[in-house]
Amino acid sequence: MYNFDFEKPTTIADAVAALASDEAQALGGGQTLIPTMKQRLASPAKLVSLTGIAEMKGVCQNDDGSLTIGGATTHATVAAQAGAYPALAALAAGIGDPAVRNRGTIGGSVANNDPAACYPSAVLASGATVITNTREISADDFFQGMFTTALEEGEIITGLRFPVPQAANYQKFEQPASRFAMVGVFVAKFADGVRVAVTGASEDGVFRWSEAETALADNFSPDALNGLAVSSVGMISDLHGSAEYRAHLIGVMTKRAVAACS
């Protein structure tokens, strides 16, 4: 890979300052960025590591019951410490493999918005809030298409705040080689409604399946989804599965997630 300058600040303020220069790039756990740089698909002039910033690490429960997770918190830590939101902890425990989970971070995953990543579905289905160094962004406004988010240049995800649903479940149909989601569905049931977010399937990245949300709000059972189908238009089609296959899987995985909730 091409060489670069490396900085490892210990405060958010120092990281923001370091990222102000041209072609600087934030480095989370590096489990996506380093392979990308090896392939020379990215060649930042400077990497600013966020892993030394203590104020961006950890899981804490707020007075209203919601969970705030620091942007530099690893998947392994979320899996171990987000027990107040079991579906989220289970999702984190299923990302990649143990060594990847010890390095990869929630903020890095969400900022990258890989169309097959697990976390974006949890953030969107939970109606979580993305907290940056300058503002708070609702999940509905944050994800803007494959690898595209509302983040500005140099803006850092310092944390995420998750409301904890009454019931929730994540079902992932793994692409067997990479273990990324071929289709992943996160269902979250709140007092005022149900949110269903789908990852892995769409060329636009994570999205909400609104017809399923409406049906499940009236009748929170797998049967409520009978007869509903997602169009294959705009679904990813590759050697692992056609667009039609992925569209079909969305229905199957959503039913499984609802069944696992109740």
């Binding site: 490396f6 590096g30 380093i34 392979p35 990497l47 390095r103």
Partner: peptide
């Protein structure tokens, strides 16, 4: 903790 040393600077 275990990490993959090919994917860490």
């Amino acid at each position: 903790v275990a990490v993959k040393s090919c994917t860490m600077f």
